[in-house]
Design a protein around this nucleic acid. Structure first.
Lengths: 166, 166
DNA sequence: GGGATCATGTAACGAGTTACATGATTTG
DNA sequence: CAAATCATGTAACTCGTTACATGATCCC
């Protein structure tokens, strides 16, 4: 369901695009929000066309198909944005490692948190390279706020681990 | 894979337990980190027993089966914790709505962010009800840090939306 | 005895990943 | 002409959810 919404949102924001274009957008601008490869995108666009949410244009050069959002697609997108209250589904390997941290001895735990911190900082750097204007700017700010909070958590956790019996 | 790790971690932390017990733990203490229902847990425990990661005890009262982590299970758990650097996979409906926020008009956008804020606050309340000691305390702090950052983001975004042309 | 809870499972489906497969066009 | 990139797809598999199914035991 959310894949559809993401595709409709992109088509609404940037205008008609091919599956290839949309896959690029996922890689470049949507990667910190939702992920999908071309093998998921192409079949989904076909289904969405069958459901009347997008119009598939005739094949262009190199077999390129350009999809355009339909009024019904826009309606569904608007409905999802305003009516759908997303359930918080967390399935996060980093948080799982944090959960299980007390199972490790002090040195292992410190190494794991150091690695997490490095991962958070890499992510911060990636987010800071994103263009800050245009669509996605709110999501970017949210991502930055969360990753900065995560870095502070890592620093506090390291201080705690190193303080106790260090 | 991570479901196995979560199960091994719980078995390591709390000692031998049944699938039913583990499902309860997922609901109560692990819900903000990883989610799994009994329909996923029971078959996985059978496979893990076949792979030698857990020992299935003989059936007790009401058909209850008690699983115990094996040395090989502990080895795998330790290996995952220390060697596996988790990839950051974000697939988050709230972040997707934040991303697409500029597609809405001002009033709709405000309503959506208000709803998000309420969701974050509900989550904060849930996390604050968790017991703060024991295993999971680090993950709890991480969750609290992230959700507080999210609430601040919602407040700033609302101020911005209301400021512009309000 | 009847309802709540304990306790385990299967089947069908949907979502997502990996590997495979193909061919056109552009650029050096 | 060869390599890179553009562009689309299928098949097999894993992971996760929803719905269905069953029976034992505890407590009122």
């Amino acid at each position: 369901m959310s894949l559809r919404i993401a595709l409709l949102g992109l088509l609404s924001a940037v205008g008609p695009a091919s599956g290839y274009d949309l896959a690029k957008k996922f890689e470049l601008s949507l990667n910190h929000v939702w992920q999908a490869g071309h093998t998921q995108i192409y079949p989904e666009l076909l289904k969405m066309a069958a459901d009347g949410l997008v119009d598939a244009g005739s094949e262009g050069v190199r077999g390129r198909k350009t999809y355009t959002i339909t009024p019904e697609g826009r309606r569904r997108l608007h409905e999802w944005m305003t009516e759908h209250a997303p359930a918080v589904v967390v399935r996060n390997e980093v948080a799982l490692q944090a959960f299980l941290l007390p199972l490790l001895d002090r040195d292992d735990a410190i190494a794991v948190v150091e690695r997490m911190k490095a991962g958070f900082e890499a992510r911060l750097a990636t987010l800071q390279c994103q263009p800050s204007g245009g669509i996605g700017s709110h999501a970017l700010k949210l991502g930055l706020a969360q990753v900065r909070a995560s870095i502070r958590w890592a620093e506090e956790t390291l201080a705690e681990l190193k303080g106790a019996g260090g």
